[in-house]
Design a protein around this nucleic acid. Structure first.
Lengths: 227, 227
DNA sequence: GAATTGATGTGAAACAAATCACAAAATATG
DNA sequence: CATATTTTGTGATTTGTTTCACATCAATTC
């Protein structure tokens, strides 16, 4: 049964990512230990929140001793399966797809785009350093590399069709850049990234802010904005 | 005073964007009227939620008559200031910046990238159709086009520095693609888009899901065995 | 034109997330 | 070794969000 999976990444998970990137930075600076308030300061949240988040993910520290950065990072690596490599496929080698295929940060985090696909693989091959396959070889590659997660960067008109293919071939998670709500079985995770909405919401809040500043009434705004 | 603005787009606002894109589609199909449950079905939420969201943004329908799509869209256009054009600057013409500069959906929604910037404008000019300015002309362009919102697609190492420049020159909102938490005055809106996190969180949930399904199978197995 | 139907709009209730407050534990101090 | 200090971990409380339930209104039917 296909349906729209209204899937939202939990804020607590987003914050864990935040803490981690902060920990990596601190580690590089030679720091070995953090307290909840260190992390809080660095990430703009409250110390309580840090501890609650850790508790949610089963992360324990040492009373009075804070947290050892190495231990924290180990736990997080495990939590996010970062010890293993993750094979990803990328569908759609337009401007955005091309940029994503070259995005070096994925590799740094053990997420490897093992293959990219496009309806017109020859046209795109010129611009790309890595292999662009035709859509007909999707199943073959997904099977060979045991791919479970895909990035979808195709035009919205073909997004659903491609998503259907992906699901049929065993994909269980999709980061979808097309501005459409994909209908998939309930066991498939969809994470929609809508660039227009991201930009537009900033415009919305900026306008609101400017208006409020005119009224010299910041209270309403702060409530709305969740610092 | 500079600080980390942990800024999160409200879910209700995200849903309003969802409703709108759905309304646009329905309008194109010739539909003139919707009910809360129509929108709910199309967007994977509940009818109550649709009505509550509308109520939050002051949108009223007609008892029994549902909502006229044209009226809804008008209200939303106003709400999001879509009647006016919005001038945006884009900083950083690497792979991602280049793709964003060519992203046609922004223009379709009245968000115009009036200029792009890079520390090495000459190198990037080759690949880009639109003008790439050197960073020294930032203030001039921002002033001339009355720009309030910027897209930041520079390497993380220079993100804070560029953000400081932007704020100094009057930018009030930033969509930040660099994986760093920018420190800005509290009246500046930062919306962080972290592509790695988006991908990684899908991997996290997929793994979790597979684990749970494994457990479910186990349960079924035990049930079947009837002790 | 009274009765019925079908939708909205919104308080109330249930649920979820964030903050508070403090006990518990580990370390430091005298 | 007792006391003070510091920081974690987590129930309790508050705050925020979603769902429920129903009064209200407009259209339709008889």
């Amino acid at each position: 049964m296909k349906q729209i999976t209204k899937y939202v990444i939990k804020n607590s998970l987003k914050r864990i990512f935040l803490y981690r990137s902060c920990l990596v930075r601190l580690k590089m600076m030679g720091v070995e230990k953090v307290f909840s308030y260190t992390l809080a300061n660095e990430t703009g949240v409250t110390p309580d929140q840090v501890r609650k988040d850790f508790s949610e993910f089963g992360i324990k520290g040492n009373k009075r001793g804070g947290y050892k950065i190495n231990e924290l990072l180990d736990i997080m690596e495990n939590l996010f399966h970062r010890n293993k490599d993750h094979n990803i496929v990328l569908i759609g080698m337009g401007n955005l797809g091309l940029a994503l295929s070259k995005y070096s940060k994925f590799v740094q985090r053990n997420m490897n785009i093992v293959a990219t696909f496009d309806i017109d693989p020859f046209k795109q091959k010129i611009r790309s350093d890595i292999t662009v396959y035709s859509m007909s070889r999707l199943k073959e590659i997904i099977d060979r590399f045991r791919v479970k997660v895909a990035i979808l960067a195709v035009p919205e008109i073909s997004a659903q069709e491609v998503a259907d293919d992906l699901v049929r071939h065993g994909i269980k998670g999709i980061v979808n850049f097309a501005p459409v709500l994909l209908k998939v079985p309930p066991d498939v995770i969809i994470n929609n990234v809508n660039l227009c909405d991201e930009l537009e919401s900033v415009i919305y809040y900026v306008h609101k802010q400017l208006k409020v500043e005119g009224l010299k009434n910041l209270e309403i705004l702060y409530k709305d904005m969740k610092y």
